[in-house]
Design a protein around this nucleic acid. Structure first.
Length: 843
RNA sequence: GCCGAUGUGGCGGAAUGGUAGACGCAGGGGAUUCAAAAUCCCCCGGUGGUAACAUCGUGUGGGUUCGAGUCCCUCCAUCGGCACCA
């Protein structure tokens, strides 16, 4: 008997699968299609164990669906544009393209030994001109349908490096390379009109039945629908300031008007007042993220202007420029009600503005607030300065009443606004999809002709100076205007990499089509039946993809059945690991790789401090290299381990002892199967028990795979293996059970399963063998053991016929000595018999 | 602060409102062996008891129910996510 040797069997079966092309997807009318997709990786250069878990989950689904008679599409590609390639080029002098394609080759070489059932014929990288050329075609089509437009928007500007910075390149408000204070600067940029679809993207969330509720909630909050009042304050010196508020019921508590430093009025004042200009410049320091703006100290400047309160008899209000007001949301101007908004309260306290409550918890509550009073809008409060509706009403009712009042008195209009902003896609970087636009002195910004696509990135660029190499390329920009033919200049901005990942799932249905998609293929394969990835993509990637599917439908690139591209979404947890730490002589932490720690000690005997399991990170050195794991244990062990122990949506802790135990278990299965294969035909006992356990296992594992209960399915397989290992059944029955065990394991441990299948004489490949079906008759037994409770506490159990009537069970239970003793002559108040489940006697 | 999730043995976790702790890890005992590795068998929530068994036990305190880890409410803790969003 040969021992279990993954190094021998895994490559062997991978070669056989590849030769048989069994994972190559072709359209077929005979079978239902099933499209399973894992979020494609960024080619950083090394796969990590988190990738292994992600792809293994997808692979289990793909293999299970293949075995259950589906025509499966399971592709893989590379999200290959992005900053790390440019950073690497800057750091080491290489080229982003070479770096990226080398990384792809390395990672593909790491992934192939995992034995994933991927159709590699569909592989592409988003940096392939064939892919991004079609993306440029999409851009042109979107532009023609008004789905893309240009406007000014702020970017992070590094004044020393003279370059645009991404948010992640801004560290504590400073440029990551130069260390200079980052400024906000306006550039003209391209935008997707995703905000036109706010209502649609929000309401369609309801139909996403197989998405995690958490993700749906996060998307809904991100889109952020609100109802409020829009109206204009009249300036006492003429002109108006338009404001939007979600709390019009607090209008009588207004004590100032605030405008954004980017508000047109602020810019007007800036031009003629040095003090305002200096203040606005101060406000523009720091990054563009909401977080950076939030963390900045709240600053205000009294403009000296005043506005009239729209309600009669109210005092005029001062106008402040304030750094916490965003030009992007609402109208870029607010009225401040310090009594009912903590931020306004802080501002009013700082600048000595009045604090006027409009409602209180009850009629005789004190009216001097020490902090803003902000109850939930659903709470009923007492309005001391209400102007619509009753004195006692909820915030919601008061808001509705206030809007109705203001509309009736021509003060303003009720409007619905969304938090969702348009998606800026311009990036001032080299390693991305060029925006196919030509700038002509006479014709303006003109889309490139489709026959000129792809507009390829030039290879001859350098990264020795900051900024976008496309800007300083000697010839690449020069071209003819697509409209008039005159000499013109190409746009040098490239697209946000989220664009690349917003339609790759559609491209997989026809990866080499001469158009973005092939409608026949898209109609056949879309939607993605099961999408699997990390929770970190819950908002942006998934929302952008939902928008793209709609835009592609409008431009004729997807059927209207595909506007929600992901039928089911699963967000898997991370793989974590303990952290091993010692301290150097200065007391600073020093981290150690898991392979350098044995029994809590380093090789030199130093005891390490063990920090509880956390997300793997290179700096904490709590990482395991999939290459090492595969070399030590093989792919099947890695696959089995990352699925066992923890539910897939939760984090799983990688432990060396767990991996050892997994390997031992697989070796045991292999040994048991080998013994069965080698055993002569012989009679035995307990066939029925083994077959019943087998059918029970088929049922349980199938249920587990259907519901992402991988860890539970694996537990059932352990239990069945124990039964099989101890069984004394006839050789033929054991053989049958071992074949089924191999099948049930095959989605998780495909190589081991194939090998067992072959040694036991299974027909063909296990990968394509039909999934076993549990016989319902074998799932029920003749007798059943019922727990007997007295007053809800389990006291004993009783064995009765499975089909015994409630009456029979009652009689049997009441006859029990223990029950009679407990009764002690008293009468039974109530007797509950749940057939097949439990008996409860209430005394 | 708001929103969301989670809380079960030494550990990871299991449990359509129906015997809490499946399965695995760690631990203990035994078999096999000259010995070890590997393998196999048994035990393994707390307390009391030789045992049978009793009793307590799913973050806290209540509630619904014949019956609650599961449903409802309060609080606590941990972990995520988010916002100067007007």
């Amino acid at each position: 008997m040969t021992p279990y040797s993954p190094a021998a069997i895994e490559p062997k079966w991978q070669d056989i699968w590849a030769e048989g092309q069994i994972f190559t997807a072709n359209r077929s009318a005979d079978k239902p299609k099933y499209y399973v997709l894992e979020m494609f990786p960024y080619p950083s250069g090394r796969i990590h164990i988190g990738h292994v878990r992600n792809y293994t989950m997808g692979d289990v689904i793909a293999r299970y669906k293949l075995a259950t008679g589906h025509n499966v599409l399971h592709p893989m590609g590379w999200d290959a544009f992005g900053m790390p390639a440019e950073n690497a080029a800057m750091a080491s002098g290489g080229h982003p393209k070479d770096w990226t394609y080398q990384n792809i080759a390395d990672m593909r070489a790491q992934m192939k030994p995992l034995g994933l059932s991927i159709d590699w014929t569909r592989e592409f990288a988003t940096c392939d001109p064939e892919y991004y050329g079609q993306q440029q075609a999409l851009f042109i089509d979107f532009l023609s349908k008004g789905l893309i437009y240009r406007k000014k928007a702020v970017v992070n500007w590094d004044p020393v490096d003279m370059t645009v910075l991404a948010n992640e390149q801004v560290i504590d408000g400073k440029g990551w390379r130069s260390g200079a204070d980052v400024e906000r600067r306006e550039l003209v940029q391209w935008f997707f009109k995703i905000s036109d679809y706010s209502e649609e993207l929000l309401s369609a969330i309801d139909g996403l039945d197989n998405w995690p509720a958490k993700v749906k909630l996060m998307q809904a909050n991100w889109i952020g629908k609100s109802r409020g009042l829009q109206f204009a304050f009249d300036r006492t010196d003429g002109g108006q300031i338009e404001v939007y508020t979600t709390r019009p019921d607090t209008l009588l508590g207004a004590s100032f008007v605030g405008i954004s430093p980017d508000h047109p009025l602020a810019k007007e004042l800036e031009a003629k007042d040095a003090k305002v200009a200096a203040f606005c410049a101060e406000c523009r320091k720091g990054g563009t993220t909401a977080e950076a703006i939030e963390k900045a100290e709240k600053l205000g400047l009294d403009t000296g202007l005043t506005v009239k309160h729209p309600m009669a008899g109210q005092p005029d209000l001062p106008v402040y420029i304030a750094n916490f007001i965003l030009m992007d949301y609402g109208t870029g101007a607010i009225f401040g009600c310090p009594a009912h908004d903590q931020r306004d309260f802080d501002f009013a306290t700082k600048y000595g503005l009045p604090i006027i409550a409009t409602f209180l918890p009850d009629a005789d509550a004190p009216n001097d607030l020490a902090t803003a009073y902000v109850p939930p809008k659903t709470e009923k409060v007492f309005y001391t300065k209400g102007f619509a509706g009753g004195a006692w009403q909820t915030g919601e009712q008061a808001v509705d009443a206030a809007i109705a009042h203001c509309e009736a008195h021509a003060i303003g209009q009720g409007v619905t606004k969304f938090r969702l902003r348009d998606w800026g896609l311009s990036r001032q970087r080299y390693w991305g999809c060029p925006i196919p636009i030509v700038h002509c002195d006479t014709c303006g910004a003109v889309p490139e002709k489709k026959e000129n696509l792809p507009i390829e990135l030039p290879y001859d660029v350098t990264f020795d100076v900051p900024g976008n190499p496309l800007d300083r390329h000697p010839t690449w920009r020069n071209c003819a205007c697509p409209a008039c033919g005159a000499p013109a200049l190409r746009e040098t901005d490239t697209m946000d990499t989220f664009v690349d990942s917003s339609w790759y799932f559609a491209r997989f249905t026809a990866p080499h089509a001469p158009t973005p998609t092939n409608m026949d293929d898209a109609a056949y394969w879309m939607n993605v039946d099961q999408y699997i990835g990390g929770i970190e993509h819950a908002i942006l990637h998934l929302l952008y993809s939902r928008f793209f599917a709609r835009a592609m439908q409008i431009t004729g690139h997807l059927p209207d059945t595909a506007i929600e591209p992901f039928n089911a979404l699963f967000t898997q947890g991370m793989v974590t690991h303990e952290i091993y730490m010692t301290r150097d002589t200065a007391g600073r932490p020093v981290y150690h790789f898991p392979q350098d720690v044995k029994n809590g000690k380093l090789a030199d005997g130093t005891v390490v401090e063990v920090i509880p399991s956390a997300k793997m990170s290179k700096s904490k050195k709590n990482v395991v290299d999939p290459d090492d794991i595969l070399a030590q244990y093989g792919a099947d062990t890695a696959r089995w381990f990352v699925l066992s122990d923890s539910p897939p949506e939760r984090d799983v802790e990688w432990t060396a002892s767990g991996a050892d135990a997994t390997y031992k278990h697989l070796a045991r299965v292999y040994r048991i199967a080998s013994e069965i294969a080698a055993a002569p035909d012989a009679t035995g006992t307990g066939d029925d028990d083994l077959l019943r356990a087998m059918h029970r296992c088929i049922h349980d594992v199938t249920m587990g795979l259907e519901t992402f209960g991988f860890n539970a399915a694996i537990a059932k397989l352990y239990a069945f293996t124990n039964v099989l290992g101890k069984s004394t059944a006839t050789a033929a029955t054991k053989r049958q059970a071992a074949l089924v065990l191999a099948q049930l394991m095959s989605p998780m441990t495909p190589h081991l399963a194939e090998d067992i299948w072959a040694s036991l004489g299974g027909a063909g490949l296990i990968a394509t063998a039909p999934w076993p079906v549990a016989d319902p008759a074998m799932l029920v037994s003749d007798t059943v053991t019922l727990p007997v409770q007295i007053n809800g506490k389990r006291r004993t159990e009783i064995v009765v016929a499975a089909d015994a009537s409630a009456q029979t069970v009652e009689t049997a239970v009441l006859a029990l000595d223990l029950v009679q003793k407990a009764l002690d002559g008293a009468s039974v108040k109530k007797l509950i018999v749940v057939p097949g489940r439990i008996v409860n006697i209430v005394i």
